Computed example of a mutant assay.
Amino acid sequence: MTKLSVNINKIATIRNSRGGNMPNVLKAAVDVQQFGAEGVTVHPRPDERHIRYQDVNDIRPIITTEFNIEGYPSKEFIDLVLSVRPHQVTLVPDPPEALTSNAGWDTINNMGFLQDVIGQFSEAGVRTSIFIDTDLENISNAVKTNTDRIEFYTEPYATNYRKDKEAAIAPFVEAANLANKIGLKINAGHDLSLENLKYFNEKIPFLKEVSIGHALICDALYYGLERTIHMYKELLVK
């Protein structure tokens, strides 16, 4: 089945809104693993408005599954990843002021930069993935960056799913076929939910992993975290 990595940023957002340590982010990291998720994802930003850099250091020792750190590869971020040594780092081209990730990499104009950063992580033994859209030229060039994986930016799919799910998935199928053909493994994330995840997973047979945070944490408010994780995992069976 496709692996589920739970992004716990929103739990940190709630904690930070009141100060203190409630809800406990470290306990959340432990819980999502115990409840069946195959990974934990965090996305520290420079302003630390949700996950803090110290959280990343504190979480690393309690990971028993897979630890995925997302973010823009600034010097501070690169230093953090090289120090923590997660199982995977996902590079996202979002500027510090971005509310959330909203685009994939332009692998043509950023080729040299990505090759340099990915080279540092590969040398440290960290698997790399780069956030990308369905532009076929960007995917063709992604393999030249020496990344291990790509992560599809799936917001366009989620937005158009209710209008026409076949049209919404079509560019992702084409892009996934190309990625698989040239040897890139495929992850996906952004706005995947209980509503649209099953169809995406069925149509992208090469999908290795999804990283889901916002929708999953929202659902957990109603169903509870353990039940919600089980509900998402049921949709990821091939």
Rank of each mutant, 00 (worst) to 15 (best):
A124N: 10
R60T: 09
F131Y: 14
F172S: 00
R15D: 05
T100I: 01
T13H: 06
A124Y: 06
S74Q: 00
V84T: 06
D47A: 14
R149S: 12
N146T: 14
N110T: 10
E209W: 09
L91I: 03
D106P: 06
A98I: 09
I11V: 11
R127E: 15
K144D: 12
G125V: 09
I69P: 03
E48P: 06
R60L: 07
D135G: 08
G20S: 03
N21S: 11
F152Q: 02
T159W: 09
S140W: 08
P95W: 08
K27Q: 15
Y157M: 07
P46T: 06
D164R: 04
E155P: 02
D116S: 15
L207D: 00
V117S: 04
D191W: 02
N109G: 15
E137C: 11
A168Q: 01
F121T: 05
E38G: 15
L91W: 01
H190G: 00
Y161G: 02
R60D: 03
A142Y: 08
K208T: 10
T64H: 13
L178C: 05
H43E: 06
G20T: 04
P93M: 10
T90W: 01
K165I: 09
R52H: 07
F131R: 09
V126Y: 01
S83G: 05
R52P: 04
H230W: 09
H230G: 10
S101Q: 06
I186C: 03
Y232Q: 06
S101T: 12
E209V: 04
V173P: 05
A167S: 14
L136I: 11
N109H: 12
I186K: 00
T65L: 11
S83W: 03
G119N: 08
F121P: 01
S122K: 14
F67C: 02
N24I: 07
F35W: 10
N7G: 10
V56C: 09
K27I: 13
E151A: 10
S211R: 00
P86M: 00
N16D: 12
N138Y: 06
N24Q: 09
T90K: 00
S193Q: 11
M22V: 15
I132W: 04
H190D: 07
V6S: 06
R52L: 10
V210R: 03
I62L: 05
R149H: 14
A188C: 09
S101L: 03
G39V: 02
H230E: 12
D116Q: 13
R127L: 14
Y161C: 08
A179S: 10
R162S: 15
V126C: 11
I182G: 07
Y157D: 07
D148I: 12
R45K: 14
A170F: 14
L197H: 00
E155C: 05
Y199E: 10
D191E: 09
F200N: 01
S83Y: 12
I69G: 00
F200R: 02
Y223F: 15
Y161V: 08
G213K: 03
N109V: 12
G213N: 06
N24W: 08
L184G: 03
P23C: 08
I11C: 02
A12M: 01
T134K: 00
M111K: 12
D47S: 11
T128F: 13
S211G: 04
S211Y: 04
